[in-house]
């Protein structure tokens, strides 16, 4: 395959970015999108141009490191797929592919296509945990958990923290991420004791990080490689309202 790649280059968050066009020939249809990027970088290296930087690690769709907005879609046009699992046979020979970073104020650009998603870590640090000292846990079967609750918690916990929800949202809202993280723990009996505290703390950490607001149009869920449902956002809204009301009257 022969491709024209329109790639965003940016030296750092304080410098202006720009698009550069690169021609790349001899791309195998069997290669993954990131392997195509590897190939581009080998070519740039031989031409004396600094390779394009992008985040990636496991390349099997689970670590959540890879990002990229490809032709306007976070993780590319394929549904339920991370960029690393996207393969070149989904593109046409001769196509121009536009590659941009995940854009959001809360995700400052580190360099080129690499962005800083540590805001997600801060949201988790605010309350995305159950307080349990190592060694103090009761027997695993001491507390039965309804299978349906456990399954729903698992659906939420499948979130890989890639940030596609933020990148695909026109408001750069992190509601899908935050609601999945909070929802996972709030659905389980183990998570009840800290539920209110957790929700309030995680939402305020989310607000402080500078993410936008949810407008309920579901673009996040459509872009999510793990198909996290908007229901978790509804649940977060509900849990948050309850927590606020309880706090008001307590």
């Amino acid at each position: 395959m022969k491709l024209t790649l329109k790639v965003w280059r940016q030296d750092g968050n304080d410098s202006d970015g720009r698009f550069e066009n690169y021609e790349l020939d001899g791309v195998s249809e069997d290669s993954s999108f990131l392997e195509m990027m590897d190939q581009l970088n080998e070519q740039l290296l031989s031409q004396g141009i600094e390779p394009v930087l992008f985040d990636h690690d496991c390349r099997e769709g689970i670590c959540g490191t890879c990002s990229l907005t490809i032709n306007g879609y976070a993780h590319g046009p394929e549904d339920s797929t991370t960029t690393c699992q996207l393969h070149m046979r989904k593109f046409r020979d001769g196509e121009t592919i536009t590659i941009e970073p995940f854009r959001a104020k809360a995700f400052p650009v580190v360099r080129d296509l690499v962005v800083d998603r540590s805001a997600f870590d801060r949201i988790t640090q605010a309350g995305g945990f159950i307080t349990v000292r190592t060694g103090s846990a009761p027997d695993g079967n001491a507390l039965p958990v309804a299978k349906s609750d456990s399954d729903k918690a698992m659906d939420a916990a499948a979130c890989i923290g890639c940030g596609a929800c933020v990148a695909s949202c026109k408001n750069a809202s992190a509601m899908l991420f935050t609601s999945a993280k909070a929802g996972h723990l709030n659905l389980l009996p183990q998570g009840q004791a800290e539920k209110d505290k957790r929700v309030l703390a995680m939402v305020s950490a989310m607000d402080e990080a500078g993410f936008g607001n949810c407008r309920n149009y579901g673009e996040c869920s459509a872009a999510c490689p793990k198909d996290i449902s908007l229901d978790y956002i509804a649940k977060l809204n509900r849990d948050h309202a309850k927590a606020k009301i309880k706090k008001f009257f307590s």
């Binding site: 159950i130 027997d139 039965p144 456990s150 698992m154 996972h184 183990q190």
Partner: peptide, 22 residues
């Protein structure tokens, strides 16, 4: 055995049977 207890308490959503046990 302690690992399983610890992880369950942390909220790791292990697969469960219909009775709610692991």
């Amino acid at each position: 055995t302690n690992i399983i207890d610890q992880c369950v308490a942390q909220g790791v959503p292990f697969a469960r049977e219909y009775g709610g046990l692991l």
